[in-house]
C-alpha cells in the first residue's frame, strides 16, 4: 500500500516554471522579454559543445477577442572552440535581425536569464487603449515535423534487432518519446525542452520606451 501511495504521489508530481513574460517597447515596436526561464541543467554543457544551439520563440500577441499577430524569433548560439567566444545570431521570421559575440558563458547565461525578443510588432497598427497579452512558446533545439516523420520512418524500419544493438521490446528514451507526444498534440515543431508562458494583460499606453 505504501508503494502504491508513493507511486500516486510521484505520478501527480509536475514541475512548475517560474518564468515571466513582460512587454517591451523600442523604436515604435512592441517586443517581449522572458525572464527566469528554467533551461535544462545540461544547457551550459551543450552551449560549449561547439555545436549550434537554437532557441526558438514563437510570440503571439492577442487581445480579448483575437490574435493580433505572431512572430518567430530564433537565437542561434555557437561556441568557437579556438577563439573561446560565443557567436549569437538572432533571426525574426527567417531574416537576420542581430549578430553579436559574447566573450564568456556567464555573458550567455545573463542573456538567457532575461531573453530579449525586441521589436516584433508595429505599435502603429495596434490600439492604445486595449488590453493585450503576449504568449511566448520557447523551444530549445526544435525539430520540425518533416524531420520527425523521417526519423519515425527510420524507427519503424529499424526495429528489427541486430546483434549487440537494437534487441529489445521497446524504445525507452524519454526525450524521444516526449517529442513524439508533442506531434500527437498537433504541434508543427517539437523539442525535448519546451515552455509556454503568457504575460499579464497590459496596455500600450502604459509601456515606456526602452533605449537601444
Amino acid at each position: 500500500m505504501r508503494r502504491a501511495i508513493t507511486l500516486l504521489l510521484l505520478l501527480a508530481n509536475t514541475g512548475v516554471d517560474a518564468a515571466e513574460v513582460s512587454a517591451t517597447l523600442a523604436d515604435g515596436k512592441l517586443g517581449a522579454r522572458v525572464d527566469a526561464l528554467s533551461f535544462p541543467s545540461t544547457l551550459p554543457k551543450e552551449l560549449t559543445s561547439g555545436l549550434t544551439n537554437r532557441i526558438y520563440a514563437q510570440v503571439t500577441l492577442a487581445d480579448a477577442h483575437a490574435n493580433r499577430g505572431q512572430k518567430v524569433v530564433e537565437i542561434a548560439i555557437r561556441y568557437d572552440l579556438w577563439d573561446e567566444k560565443f557567436s549569437v545570431v538572432s533571426t525574426m521570421d527567417g531574416t537576420i535581425a542581430e549578430s553579436r559575440t559574447l566573450a564568456s558563458l556567464p555573458e550567455v547565461n545573463a542573456l538567457l536569464a532575461a531573453l530579449p525578443l525586441p521589436r516584433l510588432f508595429e505599435t502603429a497598427n495596434l490600439p492604445a487603449g486595449v488590453e493585450l497579452t503576449l504568449r511566448v512558446e520557447v523551444l530549445l533545439n526544435p525539430i520540425d515535423r518533416e524531420k520527425m516523420l523521417m526519423i519515425r520512418k527510420w524507427v519503424a524500419q529499424n526495429n528489427t534487432p541486430e546483434v549487440g544493438g537494437r534487441a529489445g521490446i521497446s524504445m525507452s528514451n524519454a526525450i524521444f518519446n516526449q517529442i513524439f507526444d508533442q506531434y500527437a498534440d498537433g504541434s508543427n515543431v517539437a523539442a525535448a525542452w519546451r515552455v509556454s508562458i503568457a504575460s499579464a494583460p497590459f496596455r500600450l499606453d502604459s509601456l515606456q520606451h526602452e533605449r537601444r
Binding site: E46, S172, N173, I175
Partner: peptide
C-alpha cells in the same frame, strides 16, 4: 542524435566537438 535517442539502448545521447 535522434536516431540514437530512438534506441532503447541509451538513456541519453549527446554530441560535442573537440579541437
Amino acid at each position: 542524435e535522434l536516431r540514437l535517442s530512438a534506441l532503447r539502448n541509451f538513456t541519453s545521447v549527446n554530441f560535442r566537438l573537440e579541437k
